[in-house]
Design a protein around this nucleic acid. Structure first.
Ligand SMILES: [Zn+2]
Ligand SMILES: [Zn+2]
Ligand SMILES: [Zn+2]
Ligand SMILES: [Zn+2]
Lengths: 142, 142
DNA sequence: GCTTGAACCTCTATCTGCTGTAGCTTGTAT
DNA sequence: ATACAAGCTACAGCAGATAGAGGTTCAAGC
């Protein structure tokens, strides 16, 4: 039987995060000692490792929930798991594209400013006026 | 004098978002009609456009706050504005790198699965076992 | 002047994915 | 028996908005 701190150390997950995963139903409710402390089996550790690894690969908690459900039913076809992964790949590719466009714009504004007063700052000029940009950026942020 | 809906339409910002920007002190407190509705000047529209454009280029609201402060003092050196932009560029570049590593791993797992049962699914196998990965992914998510 | 209805108002809740704090209790080693 | 690390619950907060309820105001048409 493993204490929560052991799971934490062995998976690099904060203790609060493990409790959070239980709260949202991603981890099963752990058994308890007489005093109320959580105790886990190796399979819980495996599940947590799965969750963490999936997070590192950028999957949302919702996707991970689906993947865990699939993983629990080994006889099914894996088509759905594959499609979740492909969807994730697609999203990552889209984000890269958007970030590369941002990178080009940022590089240009940084390069074109000769570092004089704010009044002539190319950086601020571009931020004030999108028509100085070479690309559209429909999405906000990343 | 412009109503909030006009600012919204002319900058592509949701009305609630404009009020949110006021709440957090990013937009100045707008003047009000006798009935309590917000009314804006052209300069407020310019400021909102600046904020929105900066957000599209991925700047955080904190960075934007600094950039706006600088922009309001045209006599200063623009070194700080440039350094904020360079920092942003650097962050974007780091994110692209991380996403490209994710992309490679995702591509590999998707490609290697021949779409049979969950029990032999390569996607799920990789998610269960990081040692199948070619790269480390210290950061979570993006 | 009066009525309609779109647009405005405040307030509160929700989202994602955690993280941190306060204040208390339990488990374990010596 | 005592010390103290590690556990517990409950709640608040982060970014950056977005949505809805329920009520008021503005402006245009008649
Ligand atoms: Zn400059
Ligand atoms: Zn632009
Ligand atoms: Zn598969
Ligand atoms: Zn891995």
């Amino acid at each position: 039987m493993l204490a929560i701190g052991t799971l934490s150390r062995r998976t690099g997950t904060k203790v609060q995060t493990i409790r959070y995963y239980e709260e949202i139903g991603l981890m099963n409710e752990a058994g308890r000692t007489a005093g109320g402390q959580r105790r886990y089996f190796e399979k819980d550790l495996d599940r947590l490792a799965f969750i963490r690894h999936s997070r590192q690969l950028g999957f949302s908690l919702d996707s991970i929930r689906e993947l865990l459900d699939l993983s629990d039913n080994p006889s099914q076809s894996c088509a759905e798991a594959d499609s979740i992964a492909r969807r994730q790949l697609h999203q990552v590719e889209q984000r890269i594209k958007r970030l590369q466009a941002l990178k080009r714009e940022l590089k240009r504004m940084v390069a074109e400013c000769d570092g004089d007063s704010v009044a002539e700052c190319k950086v601020l000029e571009v931020l004030r006026d999108h028509s100085e940009c070479l690309t559209e950026h429909d999405q906000i942020g990343a």
